[in-house]
Write a protein that binds this DNA or RNA. Structure first.
Lengths: 129, 129
DNA sequence: CTGCATCCCAGATGATACTG
DNA sequence: CAGTATCATCTGGGATGCAG
């Protein structure tokens, strides 16, 4: 009647996974990073990020807003201006995300090296056919 | 000739994104978590994770191995046994990932609440049609 | 300027069956 | 037991056009 620790760990992992699904998609982090130093308008974000399509910026922002990570403020001017900014929750998130980011920066060389080595080995084994 | 900080920040974000693409996929983190307390065999992993398909476990493990995050050890027995374990790099990664995981656990309620509220508002606005 | 709908494609994922 | 190949399916993401 007493489930092992593995069980609750399992649930934790699901939760983590769910959040990572939000954070790990192609654009969320890029957007959050850009907003971390202040509110930005839609078009400003698009030009800052570069190669994000109109649609995905819109979609991703909507998702982030839904999760309470960013705020959407419409200024009823003509033409309309919409500002996005991080909520407190969103700002909070930048801390662990930055930690992961720093890890990525520190270790990107190792990863690239590992990939190169792995790929080289693959090629070698193919020759042995 | 001195690019603003934004520029190097931009590059950083790409790197972060790239790593998140690895870590953020549907299964990588689940696998890494399961391996964090010791080596596991293929079938053991599959039953621990639950609803992962044979193929995706295989594919994801391959990807992790390629990136130098896990090690694959074949024991030439009959039937063959294959053990997977975290490399030092992989073990390193669990630190920031756990940080993110703890954030997720701490804030999952807030996120759920935000979603519920957002969805409720959506429904309301639909009624106004 | 922003947002939303539609069409479309490429890649990710899953079910199944076969090999070593 | 572990890995791979094939085929079907689903989803993310881009292009475009229209609307507020």
């Amino acid at each position: 009647m007493k489930p092992p620790v593995t069980d609750h760990l399992s649930q934790d992992c699901r939760a983590v996974s769910e959040i990572l699904a939000r954070v790990g998609d192609k654009w969320s982090v890029l957007i959050i990073m850009r907003l971390s130093d202040g509110p930005k308008r839609f078009s400003r974000l698009q030009q800052m990020i570069g190669n994000i399509s109109h649609k995905m910026l819109s979609t991703t922002l909507r998702g982030l807003e839904r999760d309470g990570l960013v705020t959407r403020t419409v200024h009823p001017t003509v033409p309309p201006q919409v500002e996005y900014s991080l909520t407190e929750l969103g700002h909070d998130l930048t801390v662990p995300v930055n930690a992961l980011g720093e890890w990525a920066l520190r270790n990107q060389d190792k990863i690239r090296a590992a990939r190169a080595q792995f790929d080289a080995r693959q090629e070698f084994e193919v020759k042995a056919s």
